[in-house]
Simulated scan of single mutants.
Amino acid sequence: MGRRHGWGHHGPPGPEFLFGFGGGRPPFGKFPFGPPPPKAKRGDVRTAILVLLAEGPRNGYQIIQEVEERSGGAWKPSPGAVYPALQQLADEGLILGDEADGRKTFSLTEAGRSYVAANPQTAPWADQEDTGGDWPGGDIAAVFKEAAQLGTALVQVVQAGSPEQVAEARKLVTATRKRLYGILAGDDEEEDA
């Protein structure tokens, strides 16, 4: 299949060729399309849990999904961060877990409600709104995520596509690159060239 495109017995180039890291390390370590997005601050998982449970009972999965949704997809805490934080809050007597239908649902205890009332919690995703969507990652992280997915799609077209499909992909990538530079230049219309 690779010979059809003239790549010899090794097949088509991989993403390291397509994106210019020449087989060496990507310019940002394991983040080839830019620096890693900022991480959530210490205590953000705990704060997020308290904010959400102040609204009503939730299980761990619902907490993870709600944080991801409210942060616009910029932050999805891992189960390895959420469940230990839930256990710590339970050990402190601030939350209680009730098992129902095979799921453990957590809610604030009376002590937890008093704690939240005495120590108002600012939702970590509110930082994202205050900084124009750049916490943690926001639009910047979303652009790099899309670029990574674009790279995967390009590799698939190059590996499995017909010569006509590869040529069409090349034209699309060229037009997209020009349009991106047009955005930087403040042009409203795509340039012809």
Results as ranks from 00 to 15, higher is better:
P77Q: 07
L108T: 01
K39N: 12
R4T: 13
D187V: 06
P136C: 11
T47P: 01
A175K: 08
E146A: 12
E191P: 07
E55H: 09
M1N: 09
A167W: 05
Q121L: 09
G56E: 13
E92Q: 13
Q87V: 14
Q165H: 05
L94S: 06
W7P: 07
L108I: 06
G93T: 02
W75Q: 02
M1Y: 05
A81V: 04
R4P: 05
V82W: 07
L184V: 12
E164G: 08
V45C: 07
H5V: 02
G161N: 01
S107A: 14
Q88W: 13
A185R: 15
P84Y: 00
D130P: 00
L150D: 03
G93I: 00
A147L: 13
R179N: 06
S114V: 10
Y83V: 03
A167Q: 11
Q65E: 11
V143A: 12
T109S: 10
A175Q: 08
L18V: 10
Q159L: 07
L89C: 00
Q165C: 00
A90K: 14
A193Q: 03
E191W: 04
H9F: 07
A153S: 03
V45E: 00
T174A: 14
A100D: 12
A148L: 11
L184W: 02
L53E: 09
K30V: 10
K39P: 12
L94P: 04
W7Y: 14
F33H: 01
G102Y: 01
K30R: 15
G24N: 11
R179L: 10
W135I: 00
D134G: 11
K41N: 09
E99K: 10
T152V: 14
H10N: 07
Q156S: 11
K178G: 05
A117T: 10
S78G: 09
K178W: 04
E190C: 02
P32E: 11
D127M: 08
A126I: 15
A185D: 13
R3F: 01
E190F: 03
E55C: 08
F31A: 06
V82M: 03
A54S: 15
Q149S: 12
K171Q: 11
V158H: 14
A74M: 03
A111P: 03
D127E: 15
A185S: 13
K39Q: 14
L18F: 10
E92F: 05
G43Y: 01
G34P: 00
P77N: 08
G72S: 02
D98R: 14
A48M: 05
W125L: 06
S162G: 00
L172Q: 13
G102A: 09
D187S: 10
G93C: 03
V116K: 02
A54P: 00
L94T: 02
R177K: 10
T105F: 15
R3I: 00
I49R: 04
